[in-house]
Design a binder for these strands. Structure first.
Ligand code: MN
Ligand code: MN
Ligand code: ZN
Ligand code: ZN
Lengths: 139, 139
DNA sequence: TCATAAAAATGTAATCATTACAAATTAATA
DNA sequence: TATTAATTTGTAATGATTACATTTTTATGA
């Protein structure tokens, strides 16, 4: 996804593609690391010295509001963001802190107890030890 | 679950059953409302005038640490707690704010992308409109 | 029972992520 | 260019949670 596609994508989602918005969205797309607002700020401020943290927060809130990104609340006290709007699950390693994606067959989730409930969002969060960290502990 | 059972349960989980701890755990068991620390405090402070909010926080953290309750981070900026440690999902209504339980066939979740990952916790959160609120909107 | 130590609870201050808000800057429009 | 709207900025406020020192309660044992 190059900068032109990002511009089109933001416009498509009713978001005026200002320079900062383009850069923040580009960061989300290129680094699929589910970053916090603070991390995005720290990563971009060298390249964009005038960037303010408030703008990062404002922009991320706008993305979520317009459906261009999703908010991941996998852990208390840290909001993370993801430009991948497809249905997928997240796994956070308790040891290294990395957040992994995994495919999800949402239809398999049987919501027997929720007849007539209208589902608008789904958040599937797992926690534990990732493959790499398990190997480390064994040695 | 009467107070005697609660006492036994806390002891079983390596938690000394002080009066406050018993009352807070009893609140979780009797009101399956996934409350915040603040709500628990407000609900109990009349009955226990000496209760402090710090004690509620300390106690809930202890419960989670010892595996007697689980922390539900279904929404940013509010930690909710649940004494039900069985595997089940949560649905939060965006209109009325109520958090519903629903049964969950966890085995149905295919984690194809997570070979050799060791899962220790699972959090399944859905959001949308509950049955009651949909009916209201239709009228 | 009384002394002593350990555990639990309290109250206040600190922390920290996020938001509110007013001012400044930039972009769009005519 | 003049005018208006949108965006961005910097700082202050908010609010949930935690840190910490003090007080209270409970347990232990001479
Ligand atoms: Mn993701
Ligand atoms: Mn529950
Ligand atoms: Zn890991
Ligand atoms: Zn509802």
């Amino acid at each position: 996804m190059d900068i032109r596609e990002i511009e089109r994508f933001l416009k498509f989602n009713q978001i005026k593609p200002s320079h900062h918005r383009l850069k923040i969205y580009e960061y989300l797309v290129k680094n699929k690391n589910h970053p916090t607002a603070d991390l995005i700020y720290r990563e971009l401020v060298d390249e964009i010295p005038t960037l303010s943290k408030t703008t990062v927060y404002n922009t991320l809130n706008l993305f979520v509001e317009k459906g261009a990104a999703q908010l991941i609340t996998i852990d208390e006290s840290e909001n993370r963001y993801d430009a991948d709007m497809s249905i997928h699950g997240h796994f956070k390693c308790k040891h290294c802190g990395k957040v992994y994606d995994f495919p999800l067959n949402f239809a398999a989730i049987d919501m027997g107890g929720l007849q007539n409930f209208q589902v608008e969002e789904n958040h599937i969060y797992l926690k534990g030890l990732c493959n790499d960290c398990q190997i480390q502990k064994e040695n």
